[in-house]
Each structure stands twice: as structure tokens, then as C-alpha cells.
Simulated assay, not measured.
Amino acid sequence: MNATLKLGEHFIFDLSDCNHEILMDSERAYSLFAQAVRESGLTVVDEGFYKFSPHGFTCFLLLAESHASLHAWPEHNYCAIDLFTCAIGMDMMPLLMRIKRAFGADDFSMRKLDREASVETKLPIAV
């Protein structure tokens, strides 16, 4: 018999009409993102950052609970954030709203996907 096992939650967060100056300062934007994630209670175990030319950047935070990433297009005042966590049930909305405020986004959309595995279960043996 198969059962579905929820292993994580994946938040896809799009921020539009962000503060242009913040997104053009990639180091500052990265710092704001990393600080918000750290102060949310998630555990950062590693991180990475890549700056594109002439502008834009990608950064990621490897979490004990999974990962968080940000991809910025300053020329469009837009950034895309992925947050995948196995901290099921932890309310991520305060973190996402903090990031929205930090980037001065006037508009956002959020989608949440449950990450699930189909697992085989053993039927109990009748005695």
C-alpha cells in the first residue's frame, strides 16, 4: 500500500516594484536577505553569492532545514525568492513579509507547494 509523506514546504515568492537602489547595491541586498533569514530562526550552514555584470545577482543560503535563494533583476526592480524548508508547520509569512519590506516591494505573489514522497507502507499482519 502506498501513502503520501509530506517532507517539506516550498515557498515561491516574487517581489515586484522593489526599491531600485537596494537591488542595485547587491552586497546590501544580500545582507538584508541573509539577516532576515537568520533572524527568522532558520539555521544557515553555508552561503554563496554571485554578482552578474553589469547588474543583478544570485545568492543562496544553505539551511539545516533546506535552502533559501534570491535572484535579482535590478533593471526590472524584481527579485525571485525560493524558500524550501523541512520545518513543516513553521510560519514563514513573517519572514517573507520582512523580506518584502526590506526590499521595498510594492507588489508580491506567493505560492506554496508541499513537497511529498510516495512511500510504500507495510500492512499490519493479522494474528
Rank of each mutant, 00 (worst) to 15 (best):
L63T: 06
D107R: 15
L5E: 13
F33L: 11
M90I: 07
S53N: 13
E65N: 01
H67R: 02
R38H: 14
R38G: 12
G104K: 04
L15D: 07
I81P: 00
F103T: 03
L70W: 01
P54E: 10
I81K: 02
C59Q: 05
H10N: 02
E21K: 08
H20A: 10
L42E: 09
H71M: 08
E27G: 13
H55T: 13
N19P: 00
I12S: 10
H10W: 08
H20T: 07
M24Y: 08
G48Q: 06
S40I: 07
E27T: 15
P74A: 14
A72D: 11
R38N: 13
F57T: 05
E21H: 13
Y50R: 15
A105I: 03
T43E: 04
G8I: 12
A64S: 09
A72Q: 05
D14F: 09
P54K: 11
D107I: 02
S53R: 14
D14N: 14
L7T: 13
E39N: 11
A72E: 06
A64R: 09
A87L: 05
F52C: 14
H55W: 06
V37N: 05
S26N: 13
E47L: 01
S69T: 15
V45S: 00
H76K: 13
L5G: 02
S31H: 15
L7C: 10
F33H: 04
N19D: 15
Y50V: 15
V44W: 00
I88P: 01
D91M: 10
L23Q: 06
L23I: 08
S66N: 12
I88Y: 01
D106S: 14
P54S: 14
L63N: 03
M93V: 09
W73I: 11
F49E: 07
L96T: 07
R101M: 08
E21P: 00
K6Y: 04
H20G: 07
H67I: 08
A105W: 03
F52A: 15
N77T: 10
F60M: 06
Y78V: 07
M92H: 07
E65Y: 04
N19V: 07
L42M: 11
G56F: 11
E27S: 14
A36L: 05
M92S: 12
Y30E: 04
I88E: 00
L63A: 03
E9D: 05
F13T: 02
G89R: 02
R101W: 04
H76R: 15
H55Q: 14
V44I: 12
C79F: 04
L32H: 13
Y50E: 15
N19I: 04
P74K: 06
L32V: 10
H76N: 11
A68M: 12
T85S: 13
M92D: 05
T58L: 10
L63R: 01
G56P: 02
Y30V: 11
R98L: 13
D91C: 12
P94V: 10
H67F: 12
A36H: 02
A105Y: 06
L83Q: 02
G56M: 08
H20R: 12
C59H: 03
C18T: 06
G89W: 02
I22C: 08
S66F: 05
K6S: 06
R28M: 09
G41I: 12
H67C: 05
M93N: 08
D106F: 07
H76D: 10
F33A: 09
W73P: 00
F49G: 08
F103Y: 11
S53G: 06
G104Q: 07
H76V: 01
H55G: 07
E65W: 01
F11I: 01
V37H: 08
G56K: 07
